[in-house]
């Protein structure tokens, strides 16, 4: 896992400008909303997979590990679309009490592959983008106000701590014989203390950030995020590939 992470960090895709990568990914995903033919849908998942295996630096095994859970989910999605969608055309195939329809199968495949494509692009983006790089790039390239961008960063940083807080709270309640009886009610019992703890922590962090001179004003950036021809090339290739899929098939 660690080695995989290093390979990804060194990969070509990781050197792309995060903001542009994000923009291109979003444009492609919007364009893929036009896909309505099963062949198009199946083909549209090919470019991101190829990218992952080449410039993304992911091994086939890592790739499968990350996508398999989604693939299983989408298989069931196709199955239910086919078996239960109400369509006008005749049933083509009977199995037990299921009546599979052709339209259902086609709709299912189109939608499932569209989702799989989005997820694949998502995995490609997340596994080749450093969080700090993204935040800095958002400020530098897309002129997002630092207060907003760094706020997001601080928030994401605290995500794993949330899990830790949950464990601490649970330990505290258990030791005082005050744990919720059912795990379902635990969410309700813990919600308020977790929220107030989050607010307290964020207040402290905000004070610490202000104390170190953080404002919404101009600032320099230690990390230099580059943009150049390879970003343009990346965008053009990806758009071209998808246009071919949409128009030619």
């Amino acid at each position: 896992m660690e080695q995989a992470a290093i390979a990804q960090a060194k990969s070509l895709a990781a050197k792309l400008n995060p903001s542009y990568k994000l923009l291109i990914t979003m444009i492609v995903l919007f364009a893929l909303a036009l896909v309505h033919h099963p062949l198009q849908a199946v083909l549209s998942v090919v470019p991101p997979i190829v990218l992952m295996l080449t410039i993304g630096g992911l091994s086939l095994i890592t790739l499968l590990k990350r996508l398999l859970p989604f693939a299983v989910f989408f298989f069931f999605y196709v199955f239910f679309q086919a078996a239960y969608s109400t369509t006008n055309d005749a049933t083509v195939y009977h199995f037990l009490w299921y009546h599979f329809s052709k339209t259902g199968v086609i709709n299912g495949i189109v939608l499932a592959f569209r989702m799989l494509t989005s997820v694949t692009y998502g995995v490609l983006f997340v596994s080749t983008t450093d969080l700090t790089d993204l935040i800095v790039s958002l400020c530098q390239d897309l002129r997002v106000p630092p207060k907003f961008a760094y706020g997001i960063l601080a928030g994401i940083r605290f995500m794993p701590m949330f899990k830790e807080e949950w464990h601490k709270l649970r330990a505290a309640r258990q030791l005082r014989g005050r744990d919720a009886k059912w795990s379902v009610t635990r969410i309700v019992t813990y919600a308020l203390p977790l929220l107030s703890q989050a607010i307290r922590t964020s207040e402290r962090v905000a004070v610490a950030m202000e104390a170190r001179g953080f404002t919404n004003g101009p600032r320099t950036y230690y990390r230099q995020i580059h943009r150049g021809m390879r970003d343009v090339l990346y965008g053009l290739v990806l758009l071209a590939a998808n246009l071919v899929i949409i128009i030619a098939f």
């Binding site: 969080l131 700090t132 760094y150 960063l153 601080a154 940083r157 922590t201 402290r204 962090v205 610490a208 950030m209 170190r212 001179g213 953080f214 404002t215 101009p218 600032r219 320099t220 950036y221 230690y222 990390r223």
Partner: peptide, 20 residues
Amino acid sequence: AQFCMVEVQDEVAFGLENLQ
């Protein structure tokens, strides 16, 4: 609760960035 960055070097740099 006094850090806001992910990596150590960025954390030290954060103040310097604020100083432009």
